[in-house]
Design a protein around this nucleic acid. Structure first.
Lengths: 234, 234
DNA sequence: TAACTGTAAGATGTCTGACATCTTGCATTT
DNA sequence: AAATGCAAGATGTCAGACATCTTACAGTTA
Protein backbone atom coordinates (compact mmCIF):
# COMPACT_ATOMS: atom_id res chain seq x y z
CA UNK A 1 0.00 0.00 0.00
CA UNK A 2 1.90 2.97 -1.28
CA UNK A 3 0.54 5.78 0.79
CA UNK A 4 2.39 8.68 -0.70
CA UNK A 5 0.59 11.79 0.37
CA UNK A 6 1.92 13.76 3.30
CA UNK A 7 -1.49 13.57 4.91
CA UNK A 8 -1.32 9.78 4.85
CA UNK A 9 2.17 9.74 6.28
CA UNK A 10 1.28 12.06 9.12
CA UNK A 11 -1.90 10.11 9.90
CA UNK A 12 0.01 6.85 9.90
CA UNK A 13 2.72 8.10 12.18
CA UNK A 14 0.28 9.64 14.60
CA UNK A 15 -1.68 6.41 14.72
CA UNK A 16 1.53 4.54 15.39
CA UNK A 17 2.34 6.79 18.30
CA UNK A 18 -1.14 6.25 19.68
CA UNK A 19 -0.89 2.50 19.30
CA UNK A 20 2.51 2.42 20.96
CA UNK A 21 0.92 3.98 24.00
CA UNK A 22 2.47 7.41 23.79
CA UNK A 23 -1.04 8.84 23.92
CA UNK A 24 -3.31 6.53 25.90
CA UNK A 25 -7.11 6.69 25.65
CA UNK A 26 -8.43 9.87 27.19
CA UNK A 27 -5.20 11.78 26.70
CA UNK A 28 -4.77 14.65 24.33
CA UNK A 29 -2.57 14.42 21.28
CA UNK A 30 -0.22 17.30 20.54
CA UNK A 31 -1.81 20.42 19.10
CA UNK A 32 -1.93 21.09 15.39
CA UNK A 33 0.90 23.59 15.54
CA UNK A 34 3.17 21.24 17.44
CA UNK A 35 2.54 18.40 15.02
CA UNK A 36 3.05 20.59 12.00
CA UNK A 37 6.41 21.64 13.43
CA UNK A 38 7.41 18.06 14.19
CA UNK A 39 6.58 16.74 10.73
CA UNK A 40 7.63 19.91 8.95
CA UNK A 41 4.32 20.21 7.17
CA UNK A 42 1.67 22.89 7.23
CA UNK A 43 -1.08 23.04 9.76
CA UNK A 44 -3.66 22.22 7.08
CA UNK A 45 -1.92 18.95 6.32
CA UNK A 46 -2.00 18.00 9.97
CA UNK A 47 -5.68 18.92 10.14
CA UNK A 48 -6.52 16.67 7.22
CA UNK A 49 -4.55 13.84 8.76
CA UNK A 50 -6.46 14.28 11.99
CA UNK A 51 -9.74 14.33 10.10
CA UNK A 52 -9.06 10.86 8.77
CA UNK A 53 -8.48 9.59 12.32
CA UNK A 54 -11.57 11.42 13.55
CA UNK A 55 -13.67 9.77 10.87
CA UNK A 56 -12.57 6.41 12.23
CA UNK A 57 -13.51 7.43 15.76
CA UNK A 58 -9.91 7.10 16.85
CA UNK A 59 -9.76 10.74 17.85
CA UNK A 60 -12.45 13.09 19.05
CA UNK A 61 -12.14 16.84 19.05
CA UNK A 62 -13.40 19.35 21.54
CA UNK A 63 -13.10 22.83 20.25
CA UNK A 64 -11.02 25.08 22.39
CA UNK A 65 -9.78 22.18 24.53
CA UNK A 66 -7.90 19.81 22.31
CA UNK A 67 -8.00 16.51 20.49
CA UNK A 68 -8.42 13.33 22.53
CA UNK A 69 -7.73 9.65 21.98
CA UNK A 70 -10.80 7.43 22.14
CA UNK A 71 -10.70 4.03 23.84
CA UNK A 72 -9.95 1.25 21.42
CA UNK A 73 -13.47 -0.13 21.81
CA UNK A 74 -14.85 2.93 20.01
CA UNK A 75 -12.62 2.66 16.98
CA UNK A 76 -14.57 1.69 13.90
CA UNK A 77 -11.64 0.76 11.70
CA UNK A 78 -10.93 -2.93 11.80
CA UNK A 79 -7.53 -2.36 10.26
CA UNK A 80 -6.50 0.15 12.90
CA UNK A 81 -7.63 -2.20 15.64
CA UNK A 82 -5.71 -5.00 14.03
CA UNK A 83 -2.58 -2.90 14.05
CA UNK A 84 -3.15 -2.16 17.71
CA UNK A 85 -3.85 -5.77 18.55
CA UNK A 86 -0.74 -7.12 16.86
CA UNK A 87 1.48 -4.45 18.36
CA UNK A 88 4.36 -6.03 20.19
CA UNK A 89 2.36 -9.06 21.19
CA UNK A 90 2.18 -12.33 19.32
CA UNK A 91 0.07 -11.73 16.29
CA UNK A 92 -0.85 -15.40 16.40
CA UNK A 93 -3.48 -14.42 18.90
CA UNK A 94 -4.79 -11.74 16.59
CA UNK A 95 -4.91 -14.19 13.69
CA UNK A 96 -6.97 -16.60 15.70
CA UNK A 97 -9.36 -13.93 16.87
CA UNK A 98 -9.85 -12.83 13.29
CA UNK A 99 -10.77 -16.36 12.29
CA UNK A 100 -13.19 -16.53 15.19
CA UNK A 101 -14.84 -13.40 13.89
CA UNK A 102 -14.91 -14.69 10.37
CA UNK A 103 -16.50 -17.87 11.65
CA UNK A 104 -19.35 -15.96 13.25
CA UNK A 105 -20.13 -14.02 10.12
CA UNK A 106 -19.69 -16.84 7.63
CA UNK A 107 -21.66 -19.44 9.54
CA UNK A 108 -24.40 -16.91 10.16
CA UNK A 109 -24.48 -15.85 6.53
CA UNK A 110 -24.53 -19.47 5.40
CA UNK A 111 -27.48 -20.23 7.66
CA UNK A 112 -29.39 -17.27 6.25
CA UNK A 113 -28.41 -18.08 2.69
CA UNK A 114 -29.89 -21.58 2.93
CA UNK A 115 -33.36 -20.09 2.94
CA UNK A 116 -32.73 -17.49 0.26
CA UNK A 117 -30.17 -18.74 -2.21
CA UNK A 118 -31.12 -18.91 -5.90
CA UNK A 119 -30.63 -21.76 -8.33
CA UNK A 120 -28.04 -19.77 -10.22
CA UNK A 121 -26.00 -19.16 -7.10
CA UNK A 122 -26.07 -22.84 -6.22
CA UNK A 123 -24.86 -23.67 -9.70
CA UNK A 124 -22.03 -21.21 -9.40
CA UNK A 125 -21.03 -22.71 -6.05
CA UNK A 126 -20.54 -26.09 -7.71
CA UNK A 127 -18.70 -24.38 -10.54
CA UNK A 128 -16.29 -22.87 -8.05
CA UNK A 129 -15.73 -26.26 -6.43
CA UNK A 130 -14.86 -27.70 -9.83
CA UNK A 131 -12.50 -24.81 -10.42
CA UNK A 132 -10.82 -25.53 -7.11
CA UNK A 133 -10.35 -29.17 -8.05
CA UNK A 134 -8.90 -28.21 -11.41
CA UNK A 135 -6.54 -25.67 -9.86
CA UNK A 136 -5.46 -28.20 -7.29
CA UNK A 137 -4.65 -30.81 -9.92
CA UNK A 138 -2.37 -28.47 -11.85
CA UNK A 139 -0.91 -26.84 -8.74
CA UNK A 140 -2.17 -23.35 -9.53
CA UNK A 141 -2.33 -21.65 -6.15
CA UNK A 142 -3.54 -18.31 -7.45
CA UNK A 143 -6.47 -19.88 -9.29
CA UNK A 144 -7.30 -21.95 -6.23
CA UNK A 145 -7.45 -18.91 -3.98
CA UNK A 146 -9.55 -17.03 -6.49
CA UNK A 147 -12.12 -19.81 -6.68
CA UNK A 148 -12.10 -20.11 -2.90
CA UNK A 149 -12.81 -16.41 -2.45
CA UNK A 150 -15.48 -16.46 -5.14
CA UNK A 151 -17.24 -19.33 -3.41
CA UNK A 152 -17.45 -17.51 -0.10
CA UNK A 153 -18.47 -14.32 -1.78
CA UNK A 154 -21.48 -15.97 -3.38
CA UNK A 155 -22.66 -17.15 0.02
CA UNK A 156 -22.23 -13.77 1.63
CA UNK A 157 -24.26 -12.11 -1.09
CA UNK A 158 -26.85 -14.87 -1.02
CA UNK A 159 -27.42 -14.18 2.67
CA UNK A 160 -29.35 -11.13 1.54
CA UNK A 161 -27.89 -9.12 4.38
CA UNK A 162 -26.06 -5.98 3.26
CA UNK A 163 -24.46 -5.37 6.60
CA UNK A 164 -22.72 -8.71 6.67
CA UNK A 165 -20.90 -7.87 3.48
CA UNK A 166 -19.94 -4.46 4.81
CA UNK A 167 -18.45 -5.83 7.99
CA UNK A 168 -16.79 -8.65 6.15
CA UNK A 169 -15.02 -6.56 3.57
CA UNK A 170 -12.22 -5.17 5.74
CA UNK A 171 -11.86 -8.58 7.36
CA UNK A 172 -11.45 -10.01 3.91
CA UNK A 173 -8.63 -7.65 3.04
CA UNK A 174 -6.87 -8.33 6.30
CA UNK A 175 -7.05 -12.09 5.93
CA UNK A 176 -6.15 -12.15 2.27
CA UNK A 177 -2.42 -12.57 2.71
CA UNK A 178 -2.75 -15.30 5.28
CA UNK A 179 -5.24 -17.09 3.11
CA UNK A 180 -2.67 -17.28 0.33
CA UNK A 181 -0.18 -18.81 2.75
CA UNK A 182 -2.68 -21.35 3.94
CA UNK A 183 -3.78 -22.40 0.48
CA UNK A 184 -0.20 -23.00 -0.59
CA UNK A 185 -0.13 -26.19 1.48
CA UNK A 186 -1.43 -29.11 -0.64
CA UNK A 187 -2.99 -30.95 2.28
CA UNK A 188 -5.00 -27.89 3.17
CA UNK A 189 -6.25 -27.54 -0.39
CA UNK A 190 -7.67 -31.04 -0.23
CA UNK A 191 -9.32 -30.41 3.11
CA UNK A 192 -10.85 -27.28 1.66
CA UNK A 193 -12.23 -28.95 -1.44
CA UNK A 194 -14.11 -31.51 0.60
CA UNK A 195 -15.54 -28.89 2.91
CA UNK A 196 -16.65 -26.65 0.09
CA UNK A 197 -18.34 -29.57 -1.60
CA UNK A 198 -20.22 -30.33 1.61
CA UNK A 199 -21.28 -26.72 1.98
CA UNK A 200 -22.60 -26.54 -1.56
CA UNK A 201 -24.58 -29.75 -1.09
CA UNK A 202 -25.99 -28.52 2.21
CA UNK A 203 -27.09 -25.22 0.68
CA UNK A 204 -28.65 -27.10 -2.22
CA UNK A 205 -30.81 -28.94 0.32
CA UNK A 206 -31.84 -25.51 1.67
CA UNK A 207 -31.52 -26.76 5.22
CA UNK A 208 -30.31 -23.85 7.39
CA UNK A 209 -29.03 -25.94 10.29
CA UNK A 210 -27.20 -28.34 8.02
CA UNK A 211 -25.70 -25.48 6.01
CA UNK A 212 -24.52 -23.80 9.15
CA UNK A 213 -22.93 -27.00 10.40
CA UNK A 214 -21.14 -27.55 7.12
CA UNK A 215 -19.70 -24.05 7.14
CA UNK A 216 -18.79 -24.37 10.79
CA UNK A 217 -16.83 -27.53 10.07
CA UNK A 218 -14.96 -25.69 7.35
CA UNK A 219 -14.13 -22.84 9.71
CA UNK A 220 -12.97 -25.28 12.36
CA UNK A 221 -10.71 -26.91 9.81
CA UNK A 222 -9.35 -23.54 8.79
CA UNK A 223 -8.61 -22.72 12.40
CA UNK A 224 -6.89 -26.07 12.95
CA UNK A 225 -4.86 -25.69 9.77
CA UNK A 226 -3.79 -22.23 10.83
CA UNK A 227 -2.70 -23.46 14.23
CA UNK A 228 -0.97 -26.60 13.03
CA UNK A 229 0.50 -25.76 9.68
CA UNK A 230 0.87 -22.01 9.28
CA UNK A 231 1.63 -20.44 12.62
CA UNK A 232 4.34 -22.94 13.71
CA UNK A 233 6.26 -22.11 10.54
CA UNK A 234 7.09 -18.70 11.93
CA UNK B 1 -28.71 21.99 18.69
CA UNK B 2 -28.08 21.65 15.01
CA UNK B 3 -24.86 23.57 15.42
CA UNK B 4 -22.55 21.25 13.60
CA UNK B 5 -19.32 22.30 12.06
CA UNK B 6 -19.36 23.43 8.45
CA UNK B 7 -17.23 20.45 7.58
CA UNK B 8 -19.83 18.10 9.05
CA UNK B 9 -22.65 19.83 7.22
CA UNK B 10 -20.90 19.64 3.87
CA UNK B 11 -19.94 16.00 4.41
CA UNK B 12 -23.48 15.11 5.40
CA UNK B 13 -25.03 16.79 2.42
CA UNK B 14 -22.59 15.26 0.00
CA UNK B 15 -23.25 11.83 1.47
CA UNK B 16 -26.97 12.44 1.10
CA UNK B 17 -26.55 13.30 -2.55
CA UNK B 18 -24.54 10.14 -3.06
CA UNK B 19 -27.12 8.01 -1.29
CA UNK B 20 -29.94 9.53 -3.29
CA UNK B 21 -28.22 8.33 -6.42
CA UNK B 22 -27.10 11.67 -7.79
CA UNK B 23 -23.58 10.25 -7.93
CA UNK B 24 -23.70 6.50 -8.48
CA UNK B 25 -20.73 4.23 -7.74
CA UNK B 26 -17.91 4.86 -10.17
CA UNK B 27 -19.00 8.39 -10.96
CA UNK B 28 -17.08 11.48 -9.99
CA UNK B 29 -18.39 13.94 -7.46
CA UNK B 30 -18.15 17.66 -8.23
CA UNK B 31 -14.73 19.22 -7.89
CA UNK B 32 -13.62 21.02 -4.78
CA UNK B 33 -14.10 24.45 -6.32
CA UNK B 34 -17.60 23.66 -7.48
CA UNK B 35 -18.61 22.32 -4.08
CA UNK B 36 -17.11 25.26 -2.26
CA UNK B 37 -19.15 27.57 -4.47
CA UNK B 38 -22.32 25.59 -3.93
CA UNK B 39 -22.05 25.52 -0.17
CA UNK B 40 -20.48 28.96 0.09
CA UNK B 41 -17.53 27.69 2.08
CA UNK B 42 -13.85 27.70 1.39
CA UNK B 43 -12.11 25.01 -0.56
CA UNK B 44 -10.28 23.83 2.58
CA UNK B 45 -13.59 23.15 4.29
CA UNK B 46 -14.72 21.05 1.35
CA UNK B 47 -11.42 19.19 1.40
CA UNK B 48 -11.83 18.30 5.06
CA UNK B 49 -15.37 17.11 4.43
CA UNK B 50 -14.14 14.92 1.60
CA UNK B 51 -11.39 13.55 3.83
CA UNK B 52 -13.96 12.22 6.27
CA UNK B 53 -15.75 10.41 3.46
CA UNK B 54 -12.47 9.11 2.10
CA UNK B 55 -11.56 7.70 5.49
CA UNK B 56 -14.77 5.69 5.40
CA UNK B 57 -13.97 4.38 1.94
CA UNK B 58 -17.02 6.08 0.53
CA UNK B 59 -14.92 8.17 -1.83
CA UNK B 60 -11.58 7.49 -3.43
CA UNK B 61 -9.37 10.14 -4.93
CA UNK B 62 -7.18 10.01 -7.98
CA UNK B 63 -4.93 12.98 -8.16
CA UNK B 64 -5.36 15.02 -11.29
CA UNK B 65 -8.49 13.11 -12.31
CA UNK B 66 -11.09 13.62 -9.68
CA UNK B 67 -12.88 12.07 -6.74
CA UNK B 68 -14.96 8.94 -7.29
CA UNK B 69 -17.77 7.19 -5.48
CA UNK B 70 -16.97 3.67 -4.29
CA UNK B 71 -19.51 0.86 -4.51
CA UNK B 72 -21.50 0.46 -1.32
CA UNK B 73 -19.83 -2.87 -0.60
CA UNK B 74 -16.54 -1.09 0.03
CA UNK B 75 -17.92 1.38 2.56
CA UNK B 76 -16.62 0.68 6.03
CA UNK B 77 -19.05 2.83 7.94
CA UNK B 78 -21.99 0.86 9.22
CA UNK B 79 -23.91 4.05 9.86
CA UNK B 80 -23.46 5.30 6.31
CA UNK B 81 -24.56 1.95 4.92
CA UNK B 82 -27.56 2.02 7.21
CA UNK B 83 -28.54 5.41 5.86
CA UNK B 84 -28.20 4.09 2.34
CA UNK B 85 -30.13 0.92 3.13
CA UNK B 86 -33.09 2.74 4.67
CA UNK B 87 -33.26 5.24 1.84
CA UNK B 88 -36.62 5.14 0.13
CA UNK B 89 -37.49 1.68 1.37
CA UNK B 90 -39.25 0.75 4.55
CA UNK B 91 -36.60 0.59 7.17
CA UNK B 92 -38.27 -2.47 8.64
CA UNK B 93 -36.11 -4.56 6.38
CA UNK B 94 -32.99 -2.78 7.56
CA UNK B 95 -34.02 -3.27 11.19
CA UNK B 96 -34.39 -6.97 10.69
CA UNK B 97 -31.07 -7.28 8.92
CA UNK B 98 -29.41 -5.46 11.78
CA UNK B 99 -30.86 -7.93 14.25
CA UNK B 100 -29.65 -10.78 12.09
CA UNK B 101 -26.18 -9.32 12.26
CA UNK B 102 -26.40 -8.78 15.98
CA UNK B 103 -27.49 -12.37 16.35
CA UNK B 104 -24.39 -13.64 14.59
CA UNK B 105 -22.05 -11.64 16.76
CA UNK B 106 -23.79 -12.16 20.07
CA UNK B 107 -24.34 -15.90 19.71
CA UNK B 108 -20.75 -16.29 18.55
CA UNK B 109 -19.42 -14.21 21.41
CA UNK B 110 -21.54 -16.15 23.89
CA UNK B 111 -20.20 -19.45 22.60
CA UNK B 112 -16.64 -18.22 22.99
CA UNK B 113 -17.31 -16.69 26.37
CA UNK B 114 -18.49 -20.02 27.78
CA UNK B 115 -14.96 -21.31 27.70
CA UNK B 116 -13.29 -18.16 28.97
CA UNK B 117 -15.58 -16.32 31.34
CA UNK B 118 -14.35 -15.58 34.86
CA UNK B 119 -16.16 -16.15 38.14
CA UNK B 120 -16.49 -12.42 38.66
CA UNK B 121 -18.14 -11.95 35.29
CA UNK B 122 -20.61 -14.72 35.99
CA UNK B 123 -21.46 -13.10 39.29
CA UNK B 124 -22.02 -9.77 37.60
CA UNK B 125 -24.30 -11.43 35.04
CA UNK B 126 -26.56 -12.64 37.82
CA UNK B 127 -26.36 -9.23 39.43
CA UNK B 128 -27.60 -7.65 36.20
CA UNK B 129 -30.47 -10.13 36.04
CA UNK B 130 -31.46 -9.14 39.57
CA UNK B 131 -31.26 -5.51 38.59
CA UNK B 132 -33.54 -6.19 35.63
CA UNK B 133 -36.06 -7.87 37.89
CA UNK B 134 -35.96 -4.98 40.34
CA UNK B 135 -36.34 -2.40 37.57
CA UNK B 136 -39.22 -4.37 36.11
CA UNK B 137 -41.07 -4.50 39.41
CA UNK B 138 -40.92 -0.74 39.89
CA UNK B 139 -41.48 0.05 36.21
CA UNK B 140 -38.15 1.80 35.71
CA UNK B 141 -37.52 1.47 31.98
CA UNK B 142 -34.21 3.35 31.99
CA UNK B 143 -32.74 1.16 34.69
CA UNK B 144 -33.98 -1.93 32.89
CA UNK B 145 -32.29 -0.95 29.64
CA UNK B 146 -29.09 -0.11 31.46
CA UNK B 147 -28.94 -3.51 33.12
CA UNK B 148 -29.78 -5.18 29.83
CA UNK B 149 -26.95 -3.42 28.03
CA UNK B 150 -24.54 -4.13 30.86
CA UNK B 151 -25.38 -7.82 30.72
CA UNK B 152 -24.61 -8.10 27.02
CA UNK B 153 -21.50 -6.02 27.39
CA UNK B 154 -20.07 -8.41 29.96
CA UNK B 155 -20.51 -11.29 27.54
CA UNK B 156 -18.93 -9.45 24.65
CA UNK B 157 -15.89 -8.62 26.76
CA UNK B 158 -15.76 -12.13 28.19
CA UNK B 159 -15.52 -13.52 24.68
CA UNK B 160 -11.92 -12.34 24.75
CA UNK B 161 -12.19 -11.22 21.15
CA UNK B 162 -11.35 -7.55 20.62
CA UNK B 163 -12.68 -7.47 17.10
CA UNK B 164 -16.14 -8.52 18.12
CA UNK B 165 -16.46 -5.50 20.35
CA UNK B 166 -15.18 -3.23 17.62
CA UNK B 167 -17.70 -4.43 15.08
CA UNK B 168 -20.45 -4.43 17.62
CA UNK B 169 -20.01 -0.88 18.83
CA UNK B 170 -21.54 0.96 15.86
CA UNK B 171 -24.26 -1.66 15.72
CA UNK B 172 -24.97 -0.94 19.34
CA UNK B 173 -25.37 2.79 18.73
CA UNK B 174 -27.65 2.16 15.78
CA UNK B 175 -29.90 -0.20 17.68
CA UNK B 176 -29.98 1.80 20.87
CA UNK B 177 -33.11 3.78 20.17
CA UNK B 178 -35.06 0.76 19.04
CA UNK B 179 -33.97 -1.13 22.11
CA UNK B 180 -35.52 1.51 24.32
CA UNK B 181 -38.80 1.20 22.43
CA UNK B 182 -38.76 -2.55 22.78
CA UNK B 183 -38.00 -2.56 26.48
CA UNK B 184 -40.87 -0.20 27.17
CA UNK B 185 -43.33 -3.04 26.60
CA UNK B 186 -43.89 -4.93 29.91
CA UNK B 187 -44.43 -8.29 28.21
CA UNK B 188 -41.09 -7.98 26.46
CA UNK B 189 -39.36 -7.18 29.71
CA UNK B 190 -40.59 -10.42 31.18
CA UNK B 191 -39.50 -12.40 28.14
CA UNK B 192 -36.10 -10.80 28.41
CA UNK B 193 -35.63 -11.56 32.10
CA UNK B 194 -36.25 -15.24 31.52
CA UNK B 195 -33.87 -15.39 28.60
CA UNK B 196 -31.13 -13.55 30.43
CA UNK B 197 -31.50 -15.88 33.37
CA UNK B 198 -31.12 -18.86 31.05
CA UNK B 199 -28.05 -17.37 29.41
CA UNK B 200 -26.37 -16.71 32.74
CA UNK B 201 -27.05 -20.26 33.91
CA UNK B 202 -25.75 -21.68 30.64
CA UNK B 203 -22.55 -19.67 30.87
CA UNK B 204 -22.12 -20.75 34.46
CA UNK B 205 -22.12 -24.34 33.24
CA UNK B 206 -19.37 -23.34 30.80
CA UNK B 207 -21.02 -25.36 28.04
CA UNK B 208 -20.40 -23.53 24.73
CA UNK B 209 -23.18 -25.20 22.76
CA UNK B 210 -25.71 -24.65 25.50
CA UNK B 211 -24.64 -21.03 25.93
CA UNK B 212 -24.95 -20.42 22.24
CA UNK B 213 -28.42 -21.95 22.16
CA UNK B 214 -29.56 -19.84 25.08
CA UNK B 215 -28.37 -16.64 23.42
CA UNK B 216 -29.86 -17.70 20.13
CA UNK B 217 -33.25 -18.17 21.75
CA UNK B 218 -32.98 -14.67 23.19
CA UNK B 219 -32.14 -13.24 19.78
CA UNK B 220 -35.04 -15.08 18.20
CA UNK B 221 -37.34 -13.65 20.82
CA UNK B 222 -35.98 -10.18 20.16
CA UNK B 223 -36.61 -10.62 16.47
CA UNK B 224 -40.14 -11.83 17.07
CA UNK B 225 -40.85 -9.00 19.47
CA UNK B 226 -39.56 -6.51 16.94
CA UNK B 227 -41.76 -7.93 14.23
CA UNK B 228 -44.88 -8.30 16.32
CA UNK B 229 -44.83 -5.45 18.77
CA UNK B 230 -42.60 -2.65 17.56
CA UNK B 231 -42.71 -2.51 13.78
CA UNK B 232 -46.52 -2.76 13.42
CA UNK B 233 -46.86 0.30 15.64
CA UNK B 234 -45.48 2.46 12.88
C1' DT C 1 -13.46 35.56 52.54
C1' DA C 2 -16.33 34.31 48.74
C1' DA C 3 -18.30 35.25 44.45
C1' DC C 4 -18.00 37.55 40.20
C1' DT C 5 -15.59 39.38 36.13
C1' DG C 6 -12.40 40.43 32.65
C1' DT C 7 -8.52 39.28 30.22
C1' DA C 8 -5.00 36.54 28.10
C1' DA C 9 -3.34 32.14 26.42
C1' DG C 10 -3.98 28.23 23.83
C1' DA C 11 -6.77 25.25 21.26
C1' DT C 12 -9.69 24.27 17.12
C1' DG C 13 -12.67 26.31 13.01
C1' DT C 14 -12.61 28.76 8.82
C1' DC C 15 -11.08 31.77 5.04
C1' DT C 16 -8.12 33.68 1.34
C1' DG C 17 -4.78 33.25 -2.07
C1' DA C 18 -1.07 31.09 -3.97
C1' DC C 19 1.87 27.60 -6.10
C1' DA C 20 2.94 22.58 -7.22
C1' DT C 21 1.92 18.38 -9.52
C1' DC C 22 -0.71 15.05 -11.99
C1' DT C 23 -3.97 13.71 -15.89
C1' DT C 24 -6.11 14.51 -20.08
C1' DG C 25 -7.56 16.44 -24.36
C1' DC C 26 -6.38 19.14 -28.17
C1' DA C 27 -3.84 21.97 -31.18
C1' DT C 28 0.57 22.29 -33.22
C1' DT C 29 4.36 20.46 -35.39
C1' DT C 30 6.82 17.01 -37.77
C1' DA D 1 -0.93 10.15 -39.54
C1' DA D 2 2.06 10.21 -35.60
C1' DA D 3 4.56 12.54 -32.19
C1' DT D 4 4.97 16.58 -29.43
C1' DG D 5 3.79 20.35 -26.53
C1' DC D 6 0.78 22.98 -23.97
C1' DA D 7 -3.22 24.54 -21.58
C1' DA D 8 -7.13 23.35 -18.68
C1' DG D 9 -8.81 21.26 -14.77
C1' DA D 10 -8.25 18.36 -10.91
C1' DT D 11 -6.09 17.36 -6.39
C1' DG D 12 -1.88 18.26 -2.98
C1' DT D 13 0.38 21.48 -0.12
C1' DC D 14 1.63 25.73 1.87
C1' DA D 15 1.48 30.37 4.40
C1' DG D 16 -0.74 33.60 7.15
C1' DA D 17 -4.70 35.60 9.09
C1' DC D 18 -8.82 36.07 11.86
C1' DA D 19 -12.78 33.97 14.55
C1' DT D 20 -14.51 31.39 18.33
C1' DC D 21 -14.43 28.42 22.23
C1' DT D 22 -12.41 26.80 26.80
C1' DT D 23 -9.73 27.48 30.70
C1' DA D 24 -6.84 29.57 34.10
C1' DC D 25 -5.83 33.35 36.74
C1' DA D 26 -5.61 37.75 38.46
C1' DG D 27 -8.25 41.54 39.94
C1' DT D 28 -12.60 43.51 41.49
C1' DT D 29 -16.59 43.63 44.20
C1' DA D 30 -20.12 42.35 47.74
Amino acid sequence: MARKSLVGIVADELLDRIIEGEFPPGATVPGELELSARHEVSRMTVREAMKTLQAQQILSVERGRGTFVNPLSRWTSLEAVLRAASEGKNDADASIQLIELRRMLETGACELAAGRISEEDIASLFAYVSAMKAANSINDVAAFVEADLGFHDVILRASGNVFVSVLFEPLHRVLEKRRAETSAVPAIQEHAIGHHQNIAVALESRDPARSRTAMDAHMQQTLDDLRNLVLPAK
